[in-house]
Amino acid sequence: MIKNIFFAAAMGTLLLTALPAAADGDYRAKAIAVIKKDFQPHGQASLDRLAEDGLQAVCNRTGNKPPEYMVKQLEADQLADVKYPADGKLMGDWKSGEKLAQSGRGFTWSDDPGLPVGGNCYNCHQISPKETSFGTIGPTLYQFLKLRGTQPDIQKYVYSKIYNAKAYNTCSDMPRFGHIGALKEKQIKDLVALLLDPESPVNK
């Protein structure tokens, strides 16, 4: 796991040096210098959060549109980083998944780091029809089984998408919940069930 992250980071850096110098590089460098000097740690939000990892650096450098050859490499790296459950079971309990999808807690300087973090899913997605207060940064996931259920290995896809959204879309706006250790194996399983269990209200 740790090795994987290092590998991905190293790859990111390697790829980065291969990038043509951006025209706005000057302002970007100045922006980074300003960011480095003008923040202070607060609660759990420490200053190391200001540093880009390899993938973030590539997305930032390319306006979130890296060239095709880099996309392939980066997505392969991110996918290689996904850890699947040892028991091979990818679906958990949709009811727990729904609760988790509701919670927007986690990682801010005002959050208690001792408490479990939420999925934040409703911040960005329509999911269950009962919840009408949903965000629109991401696509609707309502009727997900009908929409996407025919795709082979759909459980594996959803599990890995939640684990690391960048494995399928390098500069996705969606966080990498498993990769950063925000969500644990059981929680991701519960979210897979929320989207794919025929009994889940999402698919009613």
């Binding site: 922006a31 959060r49 200001l50 880009e52 997305c59 990498r176 925000a182």
Partner: peptide, 17 residues
């Protein structure tokens, strides 16, 4: 121009800018 770059700068646990 620097502000524009700050607005685009993704980092942190959620990769947000």
């Amino acid at each position: 121009e620097i502000g524009k770059e700050i607005a685009a700068y993704r980092a942190g646990p959620y990769d947000f800018s």
